[in-house]
Each structure stands twice: as C-alpha cells, then as structure tokens.
Nucleic acid binder design. Sequence first.
DNA 1: AATAGAACTACCCAGTTGGGTAGTGTGGTT
DNA 2: AACCACACTACCCAACTGGGTAGTTCTATT
Lengths: 215, 215
Amino acid sequence: MTELTKISIVEDNEFARNALSDLLSQEKDFVLLGSYDSCETAFDETDFLNSDVVLVDINLPGINGIVGTEKIKNKNPKVNVIMLTINDDDENVFAALKAGAVGYLLKSEEPGKVIDSVREVLNGGSPMSPYIARKVLKSFHSFDVKSREYDELNEMETKILNLLSEGKSYNKIADEIFLSSHGVKYHIRNIYLKLRVNTKSEAISKGHKFRIIKK
Amino acid sequence: MTELTKISIVEDNEFARNALSDLLSQEKDFVLLGSYDSCETAFDETDFLNSDVVLVDINLPGINGIVGTEKIKNKNPKVNVIMLTINDDDENVFAALKAGAVGYLLKSEEPGKVIDSVREVLNGGSPMSPYIARKVLKSFHSFDVKSREYDELNEMETKILNLLSEGKSYNKIADEIFLSSHGVKYHIRNIYLKLRVNTKSEAISKGHKFRIIKK
DNA sequence: AATAGAACTACCCAGTTGGGTAGTGTGGTT
DNA sequence: AACCACACTACCCAACTGGGTAGTTCTATT
C-alpha cells in the first residue's frame, strides 16, 4: 500500500482552495493532482479524472458542484466525490447524494475532519457531517409517526405489487405468474385492502414508501 | 448541561451486555438506566422508555431488535435508538433504519466508538459504521450508471405527477389545478415522454426512484 | 408577416381498471 | 358433518386510461 492517493480540489474561493491544498499536501501519502476554481477548468485537465478523491464545492460559478459531480461520475465512476459546502438544505443534500457524491461535509467542519474524511472514503466509508447524516437517516423513517398503518403483504402480493410497479397490466402479470387475470385481480384487491388504498397509483406509491417495491 | 444522559442496553449476550455496561458506566455524564437481555424484559421496566439513548442488538430472542425499535419509537419517539449488530446485509440495515434507528453500528467496531456514537447522537448526528454509511449513501445513487435516462420535468409536470401518485384521476387533478381533463392529459403525455414510460404505474415508480415525487 | 413552440381544449376508441357479486375446490377446525 | 378461510375463476359494468389526431390561442423568433 505504498500507492499515493491522488486528490483534486474544485473550489472557487481562493482562500479556501489554498487552505485545503496546504492541508492535504501535508499528508505524506496524499498527492494533490490539482486544484481548480471551476468544474470547467478541472475538466480541461485530462488528469483530473484519474483522481482517487475529488473535493467539490457545491456553489461554483458556471457548472455547479452537483452537476459537476454527475459529470465526473458519468465519465469515471471510480472517482470518489466528497461534497464540500455551506448548504445544508434538503434539496442540495439529496441532489448531491443522488448525483453520486460519496460524502457530504459542511464547511463548518474543522479542517482535520477533511483529512479524516478522505481516509474514510478510501476505506469504503461515507463521511458525512453529523447534521447531514441525521438528515439522510431521517429520510428513511419519515413515517415513524403514522407508520405501519398497513398490513404486511405476503409473498404473492409482494410479487404482484412489484410487477404492477413495472407498468404491467393484469393480463401480463397473469401470464407471468401462471394465473388467470381474475386471480391477479383477487390478489390486487387484497393488496389494496392491506395497504388501505383503492388505486394502483396509491398502491405503488405506498409500495415505494414502505420499500415493498424493490429496485 | 449538567443533565446526565440516560442510557439503556438491550443485548442478549451476557458478555457483550456487561462489557457495554461497564464501558458506558465509566463516562461521568452517562447514567445506565438498565440493561436487558430482551425487548420483553426491557418493556417491563417503565423507566426504559425514558432513556435518552438505547443501544439495541438486532438479533434478540423473542421480539427482535428491529421490531423492538419500532415499538420503542411508537411509544416514545424521543428515544434515540442505536442499532448494534453483526448483520450488515441490506435487508437488516434498511429495515432497522426504517424502523426508526438513528444510528447503526457493527459490532466489529472498537468499543470506544460506542461512546463516541452516543455523544454523536446527542449532538444531533447519526453514527454509522463506515460500511453502513456507504451502503446508505449508495441507496441514493443506485442509478449513477444508467442515470438521467429521462428529461427533467417542469413545475406543472412535477405537480401533476405528484397528484397522480396520490391516486387522483385526470378529472380530480383537473379540478384541483383549474384545467380541463384534456389539459391534464396533455401534461401527462409529456411526463410519459420525458420519463420514457407509457403507463401511470411506471411513471410513479420512476417518480419515486428519481425523487420527483415528494413525501 | 410568417413560423414555431408551448399550453391548452377537444373527440374517438380500444383496452384497463376497480368494485360488486358469485361460485369452486382445498385444507384445516370444531 | 358443518363451517370457515383461502386462493382462485368468473361475469357485469361504469369509470378511467393511453394513443392518435386535430384545433385554438398566445408568445417568442425570424
């Protein structure tokens, strides 16, 4: 493991960029491939996409950090992007994660945390500022209050709900699971009863919310 | 902040339970309310639900940790549950988070991490073992490869897709947004085009996957 | 002035869906 | 033997859906 970890920085604020550069350069096993003030200039550098870890600011002139992250991941999925930002609003956080960021740090974090985070990423972790981590976890249990206002689906029902969610009609599903369309309908009625809904749309929505629908 | 943090433990393995108890008792600002070998015995203790933080093992005889967590959160949502487990398979992780756990630690974690995690929870964070954190983040960008195989919806389309997901018919939606049902249909056709689908079911599924549908 | 696009309204039509109701067979209880 | 729940088949019917096609108005572009 004598390999150096290649790091790049995309941050438009010169002061912050230099501070990060200095910080990371001090680590003997890190090598700073480059630091850029925008995604555009970063992409001009062919070596940029060979980075192991890229720290990307979210607020950038031109292509913002979220779109930039998307582009990076599309061009080379192996690059690990850590989002570095002052924004902690839902929209940005989830958009960034959705774009493919593997970590999300608030700039209010102390500098040492950045080093730790890079190492955490290299070890297969996903560093998040505590506040972000909580936000992310909360997105999983948004239903804790009104939760379990439905009955558990059995295997057949789960299967059928999943097929429904793929846009298949009663008839197609019937073919697929060797039942008559009436049989499918029978199960769907039970699904609706258990989920307390009366349309396919609601059933699919609840299916996703309660993670009954895979994929 | 001279308040003591009340902690409880639910762990069936006696050795592990005692180790945790000893560990946590050494912190001056923590007070161990109780340690139990099952959810059942824990719930017998009325004070249990007054805990600030509860460490729950996932594999428990009788009521398992996930169902137990659900029960805890239903009875007192203020209790912060940290899941403590050897299981790192998807099903368990997501089920636990869904149940309302605010942290998820693998037992392979070093002991000091438990103390840190309790403090992190108290500070509004969500401690997760690195491996778990990565898993959780990944669940947000499972589409990074095939990503953006759809066009962005505009405001009206987003609104309509959300209404569709609630099981509303073209007519109901039309009433709600002051359009004719034909107008609604016009937008829905565009939604299907942009999402590259041709049924409501698929549209709703994609809407959830890409987080276009709120709630 | 002509063109093009969006944001609608509108009609046709086959196919799908949801609800109601009813019947069959099988297996398990009492 | 009587009863029941469950998984299914079956039919009716009104409402809804998706696709195709077409017309209107408004606004922006050329």
